[in-house]
């Protein structure tokens, strides 16, 4: 609506759209308190962490791995210009994820696709499940 400089006769259900968008907008979603949102999966071999960070060049994301923590750090930069609307989050962010099992730091891989970063963290060799054969 802000970018709407069309003639005043062209009302185009603006009011209807206003209410419609207000109730559907992501700002209405109260789960936005932590950024970036992430999903964590576990398999027998390790963890997979998916981080939802659209619009950030993968080279600008800093991933740090300690024995039990994964730290995602970065910055969303604003373009220079005259803003009519600014809804996308901007600024620095950091999120620390604790893992309850040590991971093999040298084998951690990450790739980014369509704004979703996928980090694969294999469990440390000593932590993997092992079948023990019973001898009688």
């Amino acid at each position: 609506m802000v970018i709407d400089f069309s003639s005043i006769y062209d009302t185009n259900n603006d009011l209807e759209r206003f209410f419609d968008e207000m109730f559907r907008t992501s700002a209405f979603n109260l789960r936005r308190s932590v950024y970036p949102p992430l999903n964590v999966f576990e398999s027998d071999d390790g963890y997979i962490v998916d981080v939802c960070i659209p619009g950030i060049d993968p080279n600008d994301i800093e991933l740090t791995i300690t024995a039990r923590n994964l730290i995602v750090k970065g910055e969303r930069k604003l373009m220079e210009g005259r803003y009519f609307r600014q809804e996308r989050g901007a600024g620095s962010f950091q999120r620390v994820l604790s893992l309850n099992v040590p991971v093999d730091r040298d084998k951690v891989t990450a790739k980014s696709e369509n704004g979703i970063l996928r980090v694969t963290l294999p469990k440390a060799e000593a932590e993997r499940q092992r079948k023990i054969s019973i001898t009688s």
Binding site: I3, D20, E21, M79, G81, Y83, F84, R85, R88
Partner: peptide, 12 residues
């Protein structure tokens, strides 16, 4: 009705 995506609009 779907989700309204976060949007920036600016003039350069």
């Amino acid at each position: 009705a779907g989700v309204v995506p976060a949007t920036d609009i600016f003039e350069m």
